[in-house]
Amino acid sequence: MSPVRICSRTACKESAVFTLTYVYRDSTAVLGPLAAYVEPHCYDLCAEHADRLTAPMGWELVRLPVEDTEPSSDDLEALADAVREAARPTRRQEPVGQGIEVSRRGHLRVLRSDPSSGTTPAADE
């Protein structure tokens, strides 16, 4: 059996029963059942502090339902994976071969569309 985890709030010595995590990209705080493992950037909270929790201004607070039974490790891993995936930045694909360079000024290029590609002109840095 794992040791009892204590609430992350300063000076609180109560047992933690919830885990709080943030998805900064979506301005969302997620409060769910106590995670199976201590994760960096997550906060364990007791019942009292979880009940009084509010999200920062402009943020959404999502409270996941807590079941009477112990959550499975699969549920917690799926939640952690979903939070990590939501926080992962998406990479924007650079256009390649979609135009013909017509002019250059400093680091900027003026491109003319290749008529066969069906794209519109674009400025490229």
Rank of each mutant, 00 (worst) to 15 (best):
A29C: 12
P121K: 03
R91D: 12
T119M: 09
C12T: 07
A123V: 08
E67F: 11
V62M: 02
E48Q: 13
E70A: 03
R25Y: 07
L53T: 02
L79Q: 13
A11S: 13
L111N: 14
L111I: 07
P95Y: 06
P65L: 11
A122E: 11
G106H: 10
A78G: 02
S72N: 05
S15L: 02
E101S: 02
F18C: 02
P40E: 08
Y37D: 09
L31C: 05
A87L: 05
R25M: 09
E67T: 10
P33I: 00
L79K: 09
V96L: 15
P89Q: 15
L108V: 09
V66R: 13
E60L: 04
R92M: 01
T54P: 00
E48N: 13
R109K: 12
S27E: 12
Q93L: 08
S2R: 14
V62K: 14
E48V: 12
Y22H: 06
Y22M: 05
L64K: 04
R109E: 13
L79S: 00
D51M: 05
P89S: 15
R63C: 04
C12L: 11
P3A: 13
E48S: 12
P89M: 13
D75F: 15
V83Y: 03
R5Q: 11
R5S: 06
R104P: 00
A123R: 13
V30P: 07
A35D: 07
S73Y: 03
H49Y: 11
R112I: 04
R5F: 00
E60Y: 07
R5G: 05
C7A: 09
M57D: 09
I6C: 07
L45Q: 01
D68K: 10
A36Q: 07
L53V: 05
S117R: 12
V62Q: 05
H49M: 11
D51Q: 13
P65K: 06
V4I: 15
A36Y: 02
T28Q: 15
E70S: 06
A86I: 08
C42D: 06
E39V: 07
P71M: 12
R109V: 15
R88V: 01
L111S: 06
D68F: 03
P3G: 05
E77P: 00
M1Y: 08
T119L: 09
S27N: 14
R52M: 07
D74H: 05
L79W: 11
A50Q: 06
R105E: 08
Y22R: 07
E14H: 12
T69S: 05
E14Q: 15
D75R: 13
S27R: 14
V30N: 06
Y24T: 08
T54E: 15
R112F: 05
H41T: 10
V38M: 02
T21N: 01
A78I: 07
A55S: 10
R5T: 10
T28W: 12
V83S: 05
G99A: 00
P56C: 02
T21V: 09
C46P: 01
W59G: 06
L108I: 11
D51E: 13
L64W: 10
D114F: 03
A122Q: 13
C42A: 12
R91S: 10
D26M: 04
A122D: 08
V66F: 02
D44Y: 02
R25G: 04
L64H: 07
Y43S: 10
Q93R: 11
